[in-house]
């Protein structure tokens, strides 16, 4: 029998946690494994849908493109005009899926657990923006991309969801969570590793 505890994150083979950059770039990187991730799709102009989600999660879905909202312990990232990713604590994704499925039984929407489909690389420190800009064509100047901002974009040749979770003014900031498909995580990690070391 498999041991239920013997789970493996996307980067379990890399031993990356808390890797600190050399080469004068002040930043560190780690994998945030097993964070709960749930894709929610529904009609944003349907006030009943929005109210139902609010009722289930006490959370207002972000409606402005490239933004996020948060009611701890759940936050929501805007992925598209009818698409969000809900982020929750490791292991709590099933409860989020169940409560949404129960609440959204009527009407047209979908709730899909994708916790294992992505992992999160957390990049933090003053040089984070510079490091990201070596592979990401977005304007990452603090005036253009700030705390709470979200973008689905590319870093090098990997599709990512970029989410800024702390500001420059925060201790150890800024912090960026980079969501990447599980099978691209190794590539993206090696990409960062090449740059920071």
């Amino acid at each position: 029998m498999a041991e239920p505890g013997k789970i493996r994150s996307a980067l379990a083979h890399c031993a990356i946690d808390g890797v600190v950059a050399k080469s004068g770039l002040d930043a560190s990187i780690s994998e945030q494994a097993f964070v709960g991730k749930v894709v929610l799709r529904g009609n944003p102009s349907d006030s009943e849908f929005l109210a139902t989600v609010r009722g289930a999660l006490e959370l207002d879905l972000p409606l402005a493109p490239n933004t996020s909202s948060e009611t701890p312990p759940v936050s929501a990232l805007w992925l598209g005009p009818d698409e969000w990713m809900l982020i929750c604590a490791p292991g709590s994704e099933a409860a989020v899926v169940d409560s949404l499925n129960a609440a959204l039984a009527e009407g047209h929407s979908t709730v899909v657990d994708v916790s294992d489909a992505y992992t999160v690389l957390r990049l933090s420190g003053p040089a984070s923006r510079t490091i990201l800009a070596k592979g990401c064509a977005l304007d990452l100047h603090p005036r253009a991309f700030a705390f709470g901002d979200v973008a689905r974009t590319m870093i090098a040749k990997a599709d990512v969801i970029l989410h800024q979770t702390a500001d420059e003014t925060d201790d150890g900031g800024p912090v960026f969570d980079v969501y990447v498909a599980r099978s691209f995580a190794d590539y993206l990690w090696r990409w960062f590793d090449k740059i920071i070391n």
Partner: peptide
């Protein structure tokens, strides 16, 4: 129309 201007490589 949603995300604003991006490089053509994203499209």
């Amino acid at each position: 129309p949603w995300c604003g201007e991006r490089d053509v490589g994203e499209f």
